[in-house]
């Protein structure tokens, strides 16, 4: 690791102030990606601002027809939460499948979506459920939040406070996990609500994306067979040692059907 200054502020204002005043600072959430990046010298921040002493960034609550999850809420807390399991079981299942048990005990929702790894699970959850990302500055719809590979609409010094998930009528998330890392080789979130159907895919492309053709077909008929004949072109999908672009394109179709089945079963 390159040297850095470490801060552990006890207020949100102090955290944001520190980031603005230091030369090249980074917020540290759970650190389950950032620490390994530092160790490999892939990142060289001048300062790390640890958000671990800010309890106001953690917690799960229901507000009307929304489930609100704090940015520093750990994956294990989301997976085990009765509130999440009752209102959006697909989101609890998604959180329960991230990484491994130890990673889920440290990793956070805010950290995951700020990093926007192309194979992470949460981006599919946030985009598929049509969530809103609430930052220190503004509210961002999921559709405008994820902008590219490891890229988001967050400005320097902007901090994610919480994510607001509208509670869908039904939703399902299914992933084909890369067996060593358990990142999504492909993962699909399908959600049906009064506003329509959303289908979000992670792992397959450089950034999480929606599949409008599948959304329209499922809006007509929310059944797995409604997706018959709909294919995602392989042209712009990831192609690496784990899977070819064609294989990933095939998986999108298979997993979308399974996600619909999971949604119908209320899993």
């Amino acid at each position: 690791m390159y040297a850095f200054n470490y801060h552990r502020p006890d207020s949100l204002e102090a955290a944001i102030g520190l980031l603005r005043t230091c030369e090249d600072g980074l917020f540290l959430a759970g650190g389950q990606t950032l620490l390994q990046s530092l160790r490999q010298r892939l990142a060289q921040p001048s300062d790390l601002i640890d958000l671990g002493a800010l309890p106001e960034l953690s917690g799960i609550r229901r507000e009307g027809d929304q489930l609100v999850i704090g940015a520093m809420t750990r994956h294990a807390e989301v997976a085990a939460s009765d509130l999440v399991r009752q209102s959006i079981p697909a989101l609890a299942a998604l959180a329960a499948g991230i990484g491994d048990a130890q990673v889920r005990n440290m990793g956070t929702l805010g950290g995951s979506i700020a990093n926007n790894d192309p194979a992470a699970d949460y981006p599919a959850g946030v985009l598929g459920l049509g969530a809103t990302v609430v930052t220190s500055e503004r509210e961002l719809a999921a559709d405008e939040f994820f902008t590219g590979m490891f890229e988001t609409a967050l400005e320097p010094g902007e901090l994610i406070r919480e994510v607001r998930f509208p509670i869908p009528r039904r939703a399902g998330y299914v992933k084909f996990a890369q067996p060593a890392s358990r990142y999504a080789l492909v993962g699909v979130m399908v959600a049906e609500s009064a506003a329509g159907v959303r289908v979000a895919v992670t792992g397959a492309g450089p950034c999480v994306f929606r599949v409008p053709a599948m959304e329209q077909a499922l809006a007509q008929d929310f059944q797995p067979q409604a997706l018959d004949g709909i294919e995602v072109p392989a042209d712009e999908l990831n192609d690496d040692l784990h899977a070819s672009a064609e294989y990933r394109a095939h998986l999108v179709g298979v997993l979308a059907r399974r996600a619909v089945k999971a949604a119908l079963a209320g899993l």
Partner: peptide, 15 residues
Amino acid sequence: DRAVKSCSVLVGQAQ
């Protein structure tokens, strides 16, 4: 009381 990988936690995070 939660299992974590101590190689993936900075000592400051355990303050």
